[in-house]
């Protein structure tokens, strides 16, 4: 008689669909003995206890977690923002050629206001991402999630940097340029990015005071946009 292999015994123990093997184990004394040995050992593993947590544990977890959660934002996607920015630029060029001076000035203000608000929104989202990056544990940093976010921001960032340059706003363009380098690093980060590389990126953000610059530029853009 052919006895059950170890794999078959394990299948029977875990009640995998192994009816024939299970029947054999019932009928064959040798296999029944081996299955009982296996069961005795594996069942004993379940006896090893895990520290219990009280009923209130979930509430404790929530109280620590809640301050760390940002409200999920309906992120404006690049494909939504791009036509708007493109339209604004088109309006800007078109205005210079076709419209009279006073109307052109009004449109210029409108265009600038929209651009500033878009800039502020973009920098605000970048600020959230940079804050999370700086506070992340390099060892367990979720690069997959951040990569997608960085790619979205990168596309917007390039467009906004070009617009800032065209408008002659060099300080704003410089901040966007610094931000772009970090976004490129994140957007192209490999799945197996090491903790050391993440740490280096955190240091680069910290050393360049990028978070502070982004925050200030965002606030300025919003205030200027609201005044226009």
């Amino acid at each position: 008689m052919k006895h059950l292999t170890e794999e078959e015994l394990i299948e029977v123990y875990y009640r995998e669909p192994a009816e024939q093997a299970a029947r054999h184990a019932e009928e064959c004394a040798e296999c029944a003995r081996r299955l009982a040995e296996l069961r005795s050992m594996l069942d004993a593993f379940r006896e090893v206890a895990v520290p219990e947590r009280a009923e209130s544990y979930g509430t404790e977890v929530w109280s620590q977690l809640a301050p760390r959660l940002e409200r999920p934002r309906q992120r404006m996607r690049f494909w939504l923002l791009a036509p708007a920015l493109a339209a604004m630029l088109a309006i800007a060029f078109g205005a210079g050629v076709w419209l009279e001076h006073d109307r052109a000035a009004a449109r210029e203000r409108t265009r600038e206001r929209v651009l500033l608000m878009a800039m502020s929104d973009h920098l605000e989202r970048s600020e959230i991402m940079l804050t999370e990056l700086l506070h992340a544990d390099p060892a367990s940093f979720d690069i997959a999630g951040e990569r997608e976010r960085a790619r979205d921001l990168l596309s917007e960032n390039r467009l906004l940097r070009q617009s800032a340059l065209q408008l002659g706003n060099r300080p704003q363009a410089a901040v966007l340029d610094d931000l772009e380098r970090v976004l490129v690093s994140l957007a192209n980060a490999p799945e197996n990015r090491s903790a050391d590389e993440t740490k280096m990126l955190q240091e680069r953000v910290e050393d360049g005071r990028l978070l502070w610059k982004v925050r200030i530029t965002s606030t300025n853009a919003r205030e200027r946009g609201q005044k226009l």
Binding site: R53, Y57, T59, L65, A66, R71
Partner: peptide, 21 residues
């Protein structure tokens, strides 16, 4: 998913012990 933090809190409270184990 629609931003209701009370709903997420309910999920945290319900699943914390299982996730801990």
């Amino acid at each position: 998913r629609n931003g209701n933090s009370l709903a997420f809190r309910a999920l945290v409270e319900r699943h914390s012990r299982g996730v801990f184990r």
